[in-house]
Amino acid sequence: MTPALTVLFTSVGRRVELIRHFLDHASANPGDLRVLGTEIDRFSPAAQLLGDAALGVPRTEDPSYDRVIADICSENNVDVIFPLIDPDILRLGTTETSAPLASVDPESARMVSDKWLTYRWLVDRDIPTAISWLPSELVDTGYPLFMKPRRGSGGIDAFKIHSTVELDFFTTYIDDPIVQELLEGPEITVDVIVGARSEILAMVQRQRLAVRGGEVSRGAVVEDPAVSALVYQVIEGLKPTGPVTVQGMYARDKSFRITEINARMGGGIPLAVAAGVPVARLLTDSWLGRERTEETAIDVGLHMVRFDESLFYKP
Rank of each mutant, 00 (worst) to 15 (best):
V234M: 03
A102C: 04
D176W: 02
D126N: 10
N77I: 05
L18F: 00
V277L: 05
G237F: 04
C73A: 14
F170T: 07
S64K: 09
S113P: 06
F82D: 09
D253A: 03
D105I: 01
T129C: 12
V279A: 01
K160H: 09
A158S: 15
R218I: 03
T164C: 03
D88L: 09
A28T: 11
Q247H: 00
S27N: 12
E17Y: 02
Q207W: 06
M304R: 05
A220C: 14
P128A: 08
L271G: 04
F159T: 05
D168T: 11
W121Y: 09
M304D: 01
R67P: 08
P186G: 06
H162M: 09
I200R: 10
V204S: 03
V12N: 10
I261F: 03
V194R: 04
E236W: 01
T2Q: 14
A210T: 02
K148S: 14
T94C: 02
L283W: 00
R150M: 02
N262I: 08
G31M: 04
T259W: 02
I178M: 06
E291D: 15
L167F: 02
V68A: 08
I81W: 00
F312Q: 14
R59I: 03
L182A: 11
I131Y: 06
P186W: 01
P3N: 02
P149H: 01
G195L: 03
L288Y: 06
V190E: 05
Y313R: 05
I131H: 15
E199L: 00
D308V: 14
A130D: 11
L167S: 13
P149I: 01
S136M: 02
L92G: 06
N262Y: 09
G248V: 09
I81L: 10
V222S: 10
G93K: 02
T10K: 13
S310D: 06
R15D: 07
R20A: 07
T245L: 13
G213N: 03
R218H: 13
D253V: 11
H21P: 08
L167M: 08
A99G: 12
T2A: 08
A54P: 02
K314C: 09
S74V: 14
G155W: 02
G155A: 01
W287T: 15
E309Y: 05
E137V: 01
L23P: 00
